[in-house]
Write a protein that binds this DNA or RNA. Structure first.
Lengths: 145, 145
DNA sequence: ATCATTTCATTAACATGTTAATTGTTGCGA
DNA sequence: TCGCAACAATTAACATGTTAATGAAATGAT
């Protein structure tokens, strides 16, 4: 027998897109005031959390493809929000570090961003929020499970 | 007190991105053989499910922004997969319809796509799969709830 | 009828997603 | 040492995401 596709209204890929749009809309609105994009914010957040790291690790932790990170890092460097330095031991490699200006953006907006996320958590309820994160993690092949 | 951001590993936006990547990877792989993109596939699926419709409705049902749909519709028209006709009553409007060639792509791949989705459903379990769709819908401001 | 407003659609400009090709380095084995 | 595979990073090329500006057509008030 031939399986039929689910109606688009119950399609998992489309549901993921719409949920992401719903969550990102207020965050993008907040970030618009800072002049940086959602992806640039993600990179700065990872750098703020883990400190200096090589580009490959940064791309992985930011969930960005390498070509995207190349462009984003150049943009952030031009804005003075990160610095790039070559590894003297292995000159193919590059280290990326957040600057004070970059850290200030994180510090200034972290509370606001946390409130937005807290809003969604209270919308779903703390218990279902955790359930959602667990289920999403199980769709990610990069995760443990 | 100031709330702190969740660790990026438990960030809802990042979890949504990674889950979407996990789900889309095998679908993109399948679509690569057909020469159409994920978004083009989404447009064709909506047209196959609902039939001819105006561009605005199509953009909405495909979860695409209007400028994106404009380009995608032009691409699909050039490939002979859809037709575009002006509304004689209101010449601003445009109707878009799937062609036989477009329908054939859907018919040829629908089973394969359904199997991929079924794989995720069995990974999570039918019950949790439905729970996930419900939770995702509650993050979408466009939905009812 | 005329003008301002609204609506549908396209276009522009820039950033990112995605795959493939290319460049510069390192390391290893013949 | 030479040559080559492997790796890090960039660049290229095309498609899409996103916001803003613009064009084109309908609507409504006066």
């Amino acid at each position: 027998m031939t399986k039929t596709l689910p109606s688009t209204s119950r399609s998992l890929p489309i549901a993921l897109i719409r949920a992401r749009e719903g969550v990102m809309a207020p965050i993008r609105e907040m970030l618009a005031e800072t002049g940086i994009t959602e992806q640039q914010w993600r990179v700065l957040r990872v750098l703020a959390e883990f400190g200096v790291m090589d580009a490959k690790t940064l791309a992985d932790r930011s969930s960005l493809l390498f070509p995207s990170l190349t462009r984003i890092a150049a943009t952030l460097r031009d804005k003075g929000l990160v610095t790039q330095t070559r590894d003297d031991k292995d000159r193919r490699r590059q280290f990326i570090q957040i600057t004070q200006a970059g850290q200030k953006i994180i510090d200034d907006r972290a509370g606001q961003a946390a409130q937005i996320v807290a809003g969604f958590k209270s919308t779903l309820g703390a218990r279902e929020y955790e359930t959602l994160l667990d289920l999403l993690a199980r769709l990610d092949p990069g995760a443990d499970g």
